[in-house]
Design a binder for these strands. Structure first.
Ligand SMILES: [Zn+2]
Ligand SMILES: [Zn+2]
Ligand SMILES: [Zn+2]
Ligand SMILES: [Zn+2]
Lengths: 167, 167
DNA sequence: CAAGTTATGTTATATTATAACATAACATTT
DNA sequence: AAATGTTATGTTATAATATAACATAACTTG
């Protein structure tokens, strides 16, 4: 299901549900294999941990989780794994709150576009051609070669707008 | 000159030049006065320091600068001033590299759109209606209430593309 | 297996930012 | 002007995030 996906236009993407995690891990394994990149146990484990969160997660939370598994772990352990996962497009880093989130469709390159609810933390990745195109067009105007773009919008999500102040 | 400015469409904005700093400080003073906000000596000084950099500057660099002036200063000193300046739209924070930059036209609210050269550090703020509009449109689709948006594009600026590897 | 490369373990430290509480400055009312 | 409330700053300590540096282990390739 997540093997092939079409993200034309403004398609929204969700964090994989529990039953999809294994699928996504398999996908990640294939992706890395195809690129001659080593999808090690540690990297798999970290990606799995990231996936298990419904929301973006901090590096030190992942570190705590890793320690729980009995495995030896220090900050570099998790940061190196996250660096690798990011380099493969399997994980995005949200700069505005120093968190990490699994990408639901790493099979094609893309800029991370995120809408982050600062009330409940719900974070939605989207693929909006208009945004990407607008950034690209501005880059042309500036004669700027884009390497990567971060678009992080914070505000209130649909569910949190319903007037109830106590979620 | 910076008193009234028209940023219709894709207008680029630069960090104020040295001779413009006093103008910008005066503008900031008026702006705060009009809002019943206290533009204290400390806040003025921090804004001035930020303006004096041609590139985004880190909080601890500003802290060092503050100390040079003889004034007592600790991290909270500069962070509180920066928080205030951000709240008034006088300064933007770049989340992708934890730096702060003066806004060249704080007189109207806007999202910060930045193109950051990772080679020379040159950072260009732009006002691109297309980008803002595209984000807004996507927010409508998601029924998401935007509070603030951060768009930070990193790559190579015009000057750094000229093939020379040793700037 | 040997040699080279890449990944991980480990310790220490750098960098960025905030908590908490005391004091000072300013504003407002009497 | 004194009293009072509010906002800003000083000060100390610490939290939160991330990396440097170097040793060891694992994997890869010839
Ligand atoms: Zn993604
Ligand atoms: Zn929400
Ligand atoms: Zn601005
Ligand atoms: Zn450059």
């Amino acid at each position: 299901m997540s093997e092939s996906c079409r993200h034309n236009g403004r398609t929204s993407c969700t964090v994989p549900s529990s039953e999809q995690v294994q699928d996504l891990l398999l996908q990640a394994e294939k992706l890395c294999a195809g690129r001659q990149q080593r999808f090690t146990e540690l990297r798999r484990k970290v990606l799995e941990l990231v996936c298990q969160y419904k929301q973006p997660v901090g590096a030190y939370d992942l570190l705590d989780d890793l320690k729980q598994t009995g495995r030896s772990a220090a900050p570099p352990t998790v940061y190196r794994a996250l660096d690798f996962l990011q380099s493969q497009g399997l994980v995005h880093r949200l700069a505005t709150n120093n968190t990490y989130i699994a990408c639901a469709h790493p099979q094609h390159e893309h800029t991370g576009l995120f809408f982050v609810c600062h009330r409940c933390g719900f974070t939605q990745e989207v693929h909006t051609d208009e945004i990407v195109q607008a950034v690209r067009q501005q880059a042309v105007t500036l004669d700027f070669t884009v390497e990567k773009a971060a678009v992080e919008v914070s505000g209130t999500c649909h569910d949190c707008q319903s007037g109830n102040d106590d979620v």
